[in-house]
Nucleic acid binder design. Structure first.
Lengths: 226, 226
DNA sequence: GAGATTGATGAAAAATATTTCATTCCTTGT
DNA sequence: ACAAGGAATGAAATATTTTTCATCAATCTC
């Protein structure tokens, strides 16, 4: 099993109980109590499921998930909330949540929900990546920007996939050569630059905002324009 | 939109309300009041979502879904129930349900759940094809026969995908040239034969049973060996 | 069973895709 | 403003994939 869960919950008593119960069931838990910190942790690490309290002292749980979704993070989210009103649930689902559990709850129910949400990704593997206006269709093997289809050569596709799985992060040429090209010994080459150039010409048509930025002396970064 | 929903609910008053509300939101509804009948209808038709009452006069909602799942029917299921106890929800999810809504509920919540569940299938597009011992991983772009990974060139991949989507059916060279190669005018060529040959050498290793058969004068057929 | 037709296959030719290289264009620091 | 180093790019060289072609093997017809 050993799935990675991120618990975002400010109430330390409840957090402690959840941690104890789910750890006991074999999950790897990380706990963050502040909304802002959570966003960073969620963007950095690679979690299989987020358990998010709706009400947090600084950044609201809803906003966290909306932000993550906008960044292209598709990890399943289970909201926890003392607000049990139907309308609240609807808001949670609309914000990009996958499930909603009202407090108080019994642990068997939490565990069942967690199990159900974790089961999904393997059944329903992601077939699409999204970063802002840019989509990558993993099955049709093409990119799409605002309904404009973009055909990619194999290497361009792999390169873009790599970048889109790590949006808003600086990616060095070395990382790309090792991971996309599988080069074990890094020779002096501008392979990456050439392909980044080709990609740019394809994904930023005519007057569109560029999405791949250079970080001088370091590498490249794929971000939503602005 | 025009998604096909099957409502399995014995209480005609509630059923009428749901029918009215969801039809108004643009869904195509079919309603069945008996559990046994529901099973038949669900197995026959092709629905995008089942809304199932937990408590039915004859066959229980839980049993219906368990039976469907056992039959390999993977359609999303939303349980409705007057039984709101957490433990009941857990039972519903364990039986293969995807969501659980306690009665009474407001229609906006029902609609949001329906929308969320319907959104999934498009996200969860099929990522794997299988014909007997042969698997085609649409995302990793490789075939697998009994855990042996088989790398395919782009054209080979498209050709095998086409065949695997039409197993046990005779496929003519003309169909392949038109659909896989997108040739509008069919010239005299043995392109198909060459690529069938390459595929065969890859998918039938050493002593394995061949899976691609020639139908003299007609074309080819992909079948499970024996 | 001989001749004709259809299918299989190795290797050459053609088309595509990837990589290298030389040059030009920017950015940054002095 | 200038020099130096990093980044972008067009075009040539290389490698890979696809297609064609020639030949051989298998199957069917009479």
């Amino acid at each position: 099993m050993d799935a990675q869960l991120l618990l975002i919950e400010d109430d330390h008593e409840i957090a402690g109980e959840i941690l104890a119960d789910l750890s006991g069931r074999g999950y790897q838990l990380t706990h963050v109590a502040s909304g802002r910190k959570a966003l960073g942790v969620a963007l950095e690490g690679s979690f299989d499921l987020l358990i998010v309290d709706r009400k947090l002292p600084d950044l609201d749980g809803l906003s966290i998930v909306e932000t993550l979704r906008a960044e292209g993070v598709g990890v399943p989210v289970l909201f926890l909330s003392a607000l049990g009103a139907p309308d609240e649930r609807v808001r949670g689902l609309k914000a990009g949540g996958d499930d909603y559990l009202a407090k108080p709850f019994v642990f068997t129910e939490l565990a069942a929900r967690v199990e159900a949400l974790l089961r999904r990704p393997s059944e329903r593997r992601e077939t699409k990546l999204q970063v802002g206006p840019l989509e990558l269709d993993l099955i049709d093997r093409l990119a799409r920007r605002k309904s404009r289809d973009i055909e990619l050569l194999p290497r361009e596709f792999k390169l873009l996939e790599y970048l889109m799985r790590r949006p808003s992060r600086v990616i060095t040429r070395e990382m790309l050569l090792e991971d996309v090209w599988k080069y074990r010994f890094l020779s002096h080459t501008n392979l990456v630059d050439v392909h980044i150039g080709k990609l740019r010409r394809k994904i930023d048509a005519n007057g569109e905002m560029p999405m791949i930025y250079n970080v001088r002396g370091v590498g490249f970064i794929l971000r939503v324009p602005q």
